[in-house]
Each structure stands twice: as structure tokens, then as C-alpha cells.
Computed example of a mutant assay.
Amino acid sequence: MKHKWVLPTGIILLSLGIIFRFAGMENYIAIPLMATGGLLKIYYIALQIWLGFYKPGYELLFLIIGLLVFFSGIAMKYHTTNNQYIYLMITGLTLKLIFVVLFIRRLKKARKA
């Protein structure tokens, strides 16, 4: 497959954006890196669906719910005085990680068949 570079590039750009954000770099550097990394990951998943290597299943619920919970935690961070938002963010990231594991397992299983 000639699109193998998409996923690692997306992960690297997203990671760099997060590192720059925590390092105190300006948002005009970190946010475009994170956005581009996220878009490349979305493109990779869509490409796998379009090429027929991946058939979406229940694991997409983990991704959707994880994103909703994570972004709820981010929104709560700026509208509350307590630190309860961190639990939402950790839960959201955990659900997203579960999606990644199930997505990779399903891709490997489909390619073996």
C-alpha cells in the first residue's frame, strides 16, 4: 500500500503539536500541527474503509464516545474552578486508546483472511 506514511506522519505531527503546546510554544504553531495530525489520522481510517481493509464496527463507538468525553473535559477545564475535568479527559483518552487497539486488531485480522 502506498499510503503507509499517512498514519505515522499523523501521529508524529499530533505528538509534536502536543509537545509544543506543553512546552509553552505559541498556539499558531501547536494547533495547526495537532489539527493536521488529526486530519491525517482521519484520512487514514477513511482510506482503509474505502479500500475495504476495514469494516467499521462497534469499536467506532469507543472513538466517538471517547472524543465527546475528552472534548467535554476540555470545555469543562475553562468553565469550572475544580479539577474534575481531568477525569473526563483521562476517560476520553482511554476510550480512544481502546478504539486504536481494536482498530489495529481488526485490520490485522482482515489482512490475514
Rank of each mutant, 00 (worst) to 15 (best):
A30P: 05
Y44T: 01
L14D: 11
K96F: 15
L95K: 05
G52D: 03
L33S: 03
G17F: 01
S72R: 13
N83R: 10
T81G: 14
L60R: 09
Q84D: 13
G38D: 01
N27E: 15
L67W: 12
G10A: 05
E26P: 08
G10F: 00
G92P: 13
P32L: 06
M1D: 08
P56M: 04
R21K: 08
K96Q: 14
A35W: 07
I98P: 08
N83L: 11
W5N: 03
V100F: 11
A75R: 05
H79Q: 09
V101P: 12
T81Q: 06
G66E: 01
I29V: 09
K108F: 07
G57R: 06
F70S: 01
H3D: 11
V101G: 15
I74W: 00
L16H: 05
G66V: 01
T80F: 04
I104C: 06
A23N: 10
I64D: 07
L97N: 07
M89C: 06
I104K: 01
I98N: 06
V69M: 01
L97Y: 13
H79V: 11
V6Q: 02
K55C: 06
K2T: 10
L95N: 08
L97I: 12
I86D: 06
L14K: 07
G73H: 01
K108H: 12
Y78T: 14
Y54P: 01
Y43I: 14
K109V: 05
T36P: 00
P56A: 00
L93Y: 09
H79W: 07
G57I: 07
A113P: 06
G57W: 12
Y58S: 11
L40A: 02
I98Y: 04
L68T: 07
K112P: 00
L67C: 09
V69C: 00
I18W: 01
I86C: 07
I65F: 04
L61Q: 09
I31G: 03
Q84G: 15
K55T: 01
L67I: 10
L13P: 10
I86W: 11
R106A: 14
F20D: 09
Y43T: 10
I64V: 14
N27S: 08
M34R: 02
T81A: 14
I12Y: 05
L107W: 02
K77F: 08
M34I: 05
V101L: 14
L102G: 10
A75E: 15
L7H: 08
P8Q: 00
M34W: 00
I12G: 13
I18E: 06
T81P: 05
I11W: 03
Y28N: 09
A35V: 15
A23H: 04
N83I: 12
